[in-house]
Design a protein around this nucleic acid. Structure first.
Lengths: 229, 229
DNA sequence: ACTTTTTTGATAGTAATACTATTATACATG
DNA sequence: CATGTATAATAGTATTACTATCAAAAAAGT
């Protein structure tokens, strides 16, 4: 079943809305492939322009610089994933099961074979996010960019999950910390499994193991504070 | 009590051993301050050379590029922290208490007021590592650099902690994953507390809260698999 | 259908970055 | 005293990360 959605970001990581024009959409879709192929450091607007048959100057009309473009892509990813989680858990009544399903969806986002937006390959985007997303906030401009709302999508998603945690156990003292740790770990463990296997026990490509690890960690922490049991 | 140690890295992230000369030590110590002040992206060898009254070309004789220098600094940090943890837990018999102490030492590394090496300010280095360390392996060259042994110090430290976990509970299936998650989270939560507070529940500067969160998460996970209880 | 505005492409140019190369001098070692 | 090694000084290059200008093409308004 193919769903069609439109994701609009609240902040201005972009100069012009890239979803609005053909060139804008090409910039977004091709930058995902290029960053995936070259890595963010070697990715340049010049190479991107060449790839889409346009010019450097034209790309600069959409995004102030490549960092802002990455912020846009990562924000888009979080908004998409948030949507996906809500969609995939809407029929689950039990909050514990809903969180369990959420962890599955988050970890297996790289396997998504149901493209929600025509010009964006979510599987490639997932690889890009796993490899590069920490760079969006590890800069000297974090505080300014945070003020500008550049990290709202992640923050909202984290808060949504934290509320789920509190539904399961209202006494748990660290719901946001646990969920941000889980979100980061979901990416890290996949990355480690592929590139630094001695930092993990899960196998590359075996998403199920990562899901199992994350579920155990999360639910053990949450349950520890329950009175019953 | 002041301890004096020498940390030597096994791999060649450097061209010349920087500990061996005055210029080498100046490069290391001043680069830590500069990266802390400017952020890694704006840090250049030219600025560093100006700061220490030397030249760009001279700095290039010690490190191939600024990425390698960061690898060196981060590796040095992990080796130092590993030493610190062993030192601070050597008199603790119970593995559970030893792990608890390790988590404290790791989280509070930024408060260390006992400089182990004269020309390195561990508190500033800790800030640099919190903010920049993920960049050492999030590059297109991870696999090659991993082969070259650039991440050995982190891997060894993680393995050391994983063995501790297994001492507590030999049946725990994800000791490395749990410890790498904990190590990353220790940095992340400090960073979030300072820059993206809505992603955490701990307060900035309140290392004790982060320690508490990490301990709860780690021990809950480990204990879940114990037969007794 | 015609005008106006907006968007793009083409081209050029600049300051900074990330280096490499060369040579002279200082410095330490044997 | 000779020799090797480390450093400083200087110069130079390719690439990056932009900014500016202008004309052509496309879209929108009337």
């Amino acid at each position: 079943m193919t769903t069609s959605i439109q994701i609009n970001l609240k902040h201005q990581s972009y100069l012009r809305e890239p979803e609005a024009t053909e060139l804008g959409r090409k910039i977004v879709s091709e930058s995902i492939n290029l960053i995936d192929g070259l890595g963010f450091e070697d990715f340049t607007f010049k190479k991107l322009a060449a790839e889409i048959g346009s010019t450097e100057a034209s790309v600069y009309r959409y995004f102030e610089n490549k960092h802002r473009l990455l912020v846009y892509l990562v924000s888009w990813y979080w908004a998409w994933l948030h949507y996906l989680v809500i969609f995939q858990t809407q029929n689950i009544a039990d909050p514990r099961e809903r969180l369990a399903r959420a962890i599955e969806v988050i970890t297996k986002a790289g396997e998504a074979d149901d493209p929600a937006v025509a010009h964006i390959d979510e599987r490639v985007l997932h690889r890009v996010v796993v490899a590069e997303s920490s760079k969006v906030y590890h800069t000297k401009e974090v505080d300014a960019e945070n003020k500008a709302g550049f990290f709202l999508e992640l923050k909202h998603f984290c808060h949504y999950l934290a509320l789920l945690v509190l539904e399961i156990n209202p006494a748990f003292p660290y719901p946001h910390a646990l969920m941000s740790t889980m979100l980061e770990a979901a990416h890290q463990q996949l990355f480690f499994a592929q590139h630094l296997p001695s930092l993990t026990d899960v196998q590359a490509e075996r998403y199920t193991e990562t899901v199992d690890f994350l579920k155990q960690m999360v639910f053990a922490a949450i349950d520890q504070h329950l009175n019953y049991r």
